[in-house]
Design a protein around this nucleic acid. Structure first.
Lengths: 199, 199
DNA sequence: GTTGGTTTTGACCTGTTGGTCAAAACAGGC
DNA sequence: GCCTGTTTTGACCAACAGGTCAAAACCAAC
């Protein structure tokens, strides 16, 4: 039973913390900075979350929950190539719509996954193992070209998340004209995976 | 004219700083931590480099220099597919042999490239523009399948650097058995780009 | 408008941070 | 072994870090 104020403030804090943590990493972020971005004083922020760590944890918990959804949606009974392309599309949309979440995750991994190690070798690995069996079956049934399922997933993650995590580089290389790179990126990735998976 | 001691200590500092900066980012790294890792006292470290910033800059300067080499080596007069596959191979080897450098770079980009923005839209963009024209020519000449050159480069970077930057995740998903993922990764990427670039 | 809980704040504490400085320790050439 | 420049150190500083606390301000129900 949270009051109106509580809802507003915790939301503002998480929003601000996402900004700060995703661009500076955990150790590089400061509570003051988050508080200022949320429009609160530091003690006031610490009234809602007991510590810097707690904010970070809350953020990660919410993220990891949603992170697996697109992969879960990969349907064994669907048309193989369509299913994989749909997964690519969903992941790319997430990069476009939630780039800060992607960077938060990237920061955590690059820094050695000190807080989400168990998640990676637990939930994530289990799901990837399961879906890898599906991919392998599709390949042995000749429905897609032979491919290492694990490295296929790594490829999808790398290619789609790149547009969020390395956004600055993408824009710098493509030049000043403010073109949205996502339409071209989607076309490119659809071509890439179609050619890769049809012999 | 650097003395023996200077050479040894500056090398030790840069080595230690690479470790620390690449795993914690600039703001998350502390001078004390770097000094300890280098086996020096903090004031002693600051005798060799005037500031934390200076160490970071020295590291980045050295890195950016080497970063472009593999792409520069892409030879317009070579066999198109071979040239691109060779580039992929070189980049993947860099991920394997210099993962910390890759993570240092990734950290910098994720954090908005505050220190290397000019490099991205300068040297890097210029080189990519140039090589993109080569790719485009190959495509219009029918020597490789049609492809967006810029997104092709993004794909190569994303796929190869992923194995360095997301190393922890790769190992977690592949499971505890300490298998070196690089041989499989190389085979996978060669297949991927061969299929992508041959009609 | 008083009451009881919620929210906010300023002052404060302790440890850490990047960085300075003068003095001490240490080279190596003579 | 002495001298000159190099290297190292302990003590120190101001700013900032995460976090605490008691008191004040606010709010809503009565």
């Amino acid at each position: 039973m949270a009051t109106r104020i509580q809802q507003r403030n915790t939301a503002a804090i998480l929003e601000a913390a996402l900004d700060v943590f995703s661009t500076h990493g955990f150790r590089g972020a400061t509570v003051d900075q988050i508080a200022r971005a949320a429009g609160l004083s530091k003690p006031n922020l610490l009234y809602y979350f007991p510590s810097k760590e707690a904010i970070h944890t809350a953020l990660l918990d919410g993220l990891l929950e949603a992170w697996l959804d697109p992969l879960r949606a990969l349907d064994e009974t669907g048309e193989p190539l369509d299913e994989i392309l749909a997964y690519v599309r969903r992941k790319l949309e997430m990069s476009r719509d939630f780039p800060r979440e992607s960077r938060l995750f990237a920061n955590e991994i690059i820094q050695g996954a000190p807080r989400i190690g168990p998640y990676l070798s637990g939930e994530l690995k289990d799901l990837v193992d399961e879906k890898s069996r599906v991919i392998r079956r599709w390949a042995t049934d000749g429905k897609i070209a032979p491919v290492d399922p694990y490295h296929l997933f790594f490829s999808i993650w790398a290619l789609t998340q790149h547009y969020a995590d390395f956004d600055v580089q993408v824009h710098a290389v493509l030049g000043g004209n403010q073109i949205d790179p996502y339409p071209d990126a989607l076309a490119h990735l659809e071509t890439l995976f179609t050619r890769m998976l049809t012999r």
